[in-house]
Write a protein that binds this DNA or RNA. Structure first.
Lengths: 104, 104
DNA sequence: ATCCTATATAATATAATTCCTATATAGGTG
DNA sequence: CACCTATATAGGAATTATATTATATAGGAT
């Protein structure tokens, strides 16, 4: 059971074409990103650096987008060495969809 | 199959607490709105006038919110006499949820 | 320590959202 | 027709979102 605030935060996070695109990419990291040295694409997540490059936005913009997705609990960050890797939070995503089915 | 634009439009429409609330009310109009003279709450939809009153916003603000929901195809307007009645578009809502399950 | 790479934060500009008041339009009623 | 009710549109103010460049911080490598 989520409160309305967390639901609208998640919906707002997803209502940007840029962030929706990121979420889609993260469903199948191996299909969309090159192999990484320091973290496994699937196990650990995708390095922000690669997401930034693929987006074609500035590094700070990408950083903020990822932070918003993380703030909505849709992805989770993991720091390895100097890099941050983002991975989908499947449980929270499922819970959002359930909550959405109840309310909308 | 919906295109990304219609999905993000729908998500944006739902990512406002006000509009999410409206969508919830419209799930069970009889539980949330008084009986109407000119149109059946369930068959025809809920009169904008009642939605406006329940929201506690100005009439133009309510009008714009409803227009956004309608623009995202989440509700459908029906004009009877001088009033407009809004009803959920269950098919489009289901289709959005399916599309969301595929992408997010 | 110095340098390099990766990410975050600050400052800023522009655009979009959300609300308001005032006004216009559309449709009935007397 | 004049008038009333219901809804939409226009214009404007405050807030939030999205992007940028410049700078700060964090961690490794030389």
């Amino acid at each position: 059971m989520e409160d309305e605030e967390s639901i609208t935060a998640a919906l707002k996070a997803l209502s940007s074409p840029v962030r929706l695109q990121i979420m889609e990419w993260l469903r199948d990291p191996r299909a969309h990103f090159p192999p990484q040295r320091d973290g496994d694409l699937v196990e650990d997540g995708v390095c922000v650096n690669f997401i930034t490059a693929k987006l074609g936005l500035s590094q700070p913009s990408a950083s903020v987008h990822m932070k918003m997705l993380a703030g909505a609990n849709l992805v989770r960050p993991k720091r390895i060495k100097q890099s941050v890797f983002y991975k989908r939070n499947e449980e929270a995503i499922r819970s959002l969809q359930e909550e959405l089915a109840k309310r909308v």
